[in-house]
Design a protein around this nucleic acid. Structure first.
Ligand SMILES: [Mn+2]
Ligand SMILES: [Mn+2]
Ligand SMILES: [Mn+2]
Ligand SMILES: [Mn+2]
Lengths: 152, 152
DNA sequence: CAATAAGTATAGCGAAGGCTATAAATCGGC
DNA sequence: GCCGATTTATAGCCTTCGCTATACTTATTG
């Protein structure tokens, strides 16, 4: 059952209960790891033409079997393919997700810097923040950045 | 072993490796749940004078045994106390954490609204974002908000 | 004050996401 | 083409955080 939001209000004004907000944060968390892997695998393919398990593990900062298991989940969810002892590839869905995630990542970093966060800190915090930035928030970030560019 | 940052640079300019950033995001995640419970238990005590397991579970949007288990972890980590069939209480450490987390939560919501995110969306996204906002980012948020108040 | 209702704890399960140790496959150099 | 080095897979373990079902304790009410 979907979380019940306040009825009789236009969607923009519906306020979610505190439980709904926590539930949403948990759901986001469940896909955050997939997002990071997919974005990063896309980077590796762009840079090296391929994504090897060892490189994936190193970039994620995890042990190699941990990466192997995550890749198994990516395959299970239709985001990647791989054959034993060969590299990892993104499906069309995986590549599309990677592009969206990468764009959102960049917008989050840019917005943090725009409001005065030091660049290194922005890059550090963005890695976690990005996954919780909804479409609506992302749109607001981009509008803000566009406005700021106009005014400079 | 701590993540190795680039040496020979002043701290503000040290840029973490991608693996370091992912590792940090995972570490944040490990404490996010504790932060949410502690903040929310503080709210319940302030509102009702006590925090019962059933109310905690309801506000978190989880089953009652799930809340009981989380409370066990809070106790293990020295953030809360409780006696069987009695309410849950925060230790001094727990109460201090709750206050910090609550203040950060409010600043995150305020910043999102300040850059144009609709209020309901801001409240929804903040529940996840807040945990990844470091001290440095929080300071920048508060400076930005103070500046904006001055200019209005 | 006994019976019922409500609240809490416990048992037991599963999925995720970590890890180390080790087996198996592939790759490169000779 | 073989052999050692590298890479990948597999096995087995742990912790956290969900869940349901059920037992037990406390509170309420007739
Ligand atoms: Mn990320
Ligand atoms: Mn990212
Ligand atoms: Mn939160
Ligand atoms: Mn919060």
């Amino acid at each position: 059952m979907a979380p019940s939001l306040s009825p009789n209000l236009p969607p923009e004004q519906q306020s979610a209960s505190q439980a709904d907000r926590f539930t949403r944060a948990r759901e986001v968390q469940a896909v955050a790891l997939l997002e990071d892997y997919v974005e990063m695998i896309g980077d590796l393919i762009a840079e090296h033409g391929e994504a090897r398990v060892a490189d994936i593990a190193e970039r994620m900062g995890v042990a190699q079997p941990t990466a192997t298991k995550a890749i198994a989940r990516l395959k299970r969810e239709g985001l990647a393919t791989s054959r034993p002892y060969r590299g990892v590839f993104l499906t069309d869905d995986g590549a599309a997700l990677a592009d969206r995630v990468r764009a959102r990542h960049r917008s989050v970093v840019a917005l943090l810097i725009a409001v005065g966060v030091p660049e290194t800190t922005a890059e550090l915090d963005a890695e976690g923040i990005e996954h919780h930035v909804s479409e609506g928030t992302l749109a607001a970030f981009e509008a803000y950045l566009a406005q700021q560019n106009r005014n400079k």
